[in-house]
Design a protein around this nucleic acid. Sequence first.
DNA 1: AAGTAAGACAACCGCCCCGTA
DNA 2: ATACGGGGCGGTTGTCTTACT
Length: 431
Amino acid sequence: MKAEIGERGGKKAERGLKKGPWTPAEDAILVEHVRRHGEGNWNAVQRHSGLARCGKSCRLRWANHLRPNLKKGSFTPDEELLILRLHAQLGNKWARMAAQLPGRTDNEIKNYWNTRLKRRQRAGLPIYPPELQEVVGFDHQLKQQASTLLRTPPPLPPPPSAAECSARLPSLRPAPLLDPAIFRPLSGMTLPPLPQNLFSCHLGFGFPLSPASPPPTPTSLFQPQQQQQQLGPGNYEVSRPQRLPSVPWPTPAKMELPSYQLFPEPVGGRDGPTSSGLLEALLQDAHVPDDMKLGELLALPTVGEQEAVWEHVFFGGDSSEAIKEISQGCSLGSATKLECLDCNMGSKNKSEARGDADTEQDDISALLNIPAPPVSMIPDWCNTDSTESPAMVGNETGLDTHQLASPVSIASTDHDWNISSWPWSNMPGIC
DNA sequence: AAGTAAGACAACCGCCCCGTA
DNA sequence: ATACGGGGCGGTTGTCTTACT
């Protein structure tokens, strides 16, 4: 947006391509083009239809506003919760988050998050719920500090040998996205108690409360130890930072929130039943009151109030009716006039989403040089909602949204996962 | 009622990856 | 091997609406 700033609303850019808001006529042209030719080849839209828009603009308009099955309106509480969880795990991977939120676009999620971030920054509140902020001690200020530090990345340690890598791999396991102490398991599942570091698992990383030797977790594999040390005593003093194994960490352009990108993204179509099953599973576990919006409770001014509300949400009384209501609202996307478009577009979407997931699975497996876990590794409780996900049935990689949203990870069921020994837990909350 | 701040939304840009010629 | 085009993604910014003073 340089010379074009302020020119929105009808003027044409240099190459004769229009910028700015789309008109209904342009929308109609684009919809008709997609109906005839399908998605993709966006640059051909201008040639075929005469629409004075660049291909990128067409793709964006279609993806964010015109494609069928788009969900309009504000996020539901369960969607907000899911965004929180996904962001804790993925960082600013909006497209991947959108893949877990049927009918939602990455742009929507991004806007929601940025708005929420800004609001909480202004209010001096932590990004995450009090459990995250108090126990994990990670908030936006720390993020900003780390981001600043990362502008000049420290020299990388020598890369580990293949033997070193393979020696560490057995300890690699997906972090439980949700802490069992907070999020109760699905029906029939018993969780081991984790009295401390609430939400640490949720974040996908932890802050050790003791200087015990941390296991070589995926987090520590990606732990920028120099960065941690540079934070210095002025920023955290509970205990001295751990000396971590010399493992190279990816050189990020900037630091994102704790991300578990080491691990396979749940596989599932954007609009398939998997995600709705996830939401149902989440809601079955969380006692979400019907008179409460997550965004509201997260904005409560004091930690005590937030704790009380969160306790009510996840341990509170019977709210099955509210859960039912939320589930229905989630599964019933608002119908649009465009939903009557060719169904083959939707099928293409699904295949693309599936392809993305597979590709990502491959990438992660290749990165770790380990085979993707078979479906049989997934505990039974992942399917207790009985709606068998096609993504799981038909996919050898086998990790779907159930795992992402599950109270505990697959591995956490057969490992003693001492999250209290993780390196980052030396950092207390700033707020 | 007017001004202002904040929120929500929409759109564009630059970068990157990937497939193909 | 390389250039190029298509497409995806994340970041940023502009505009409009709403709430507040």
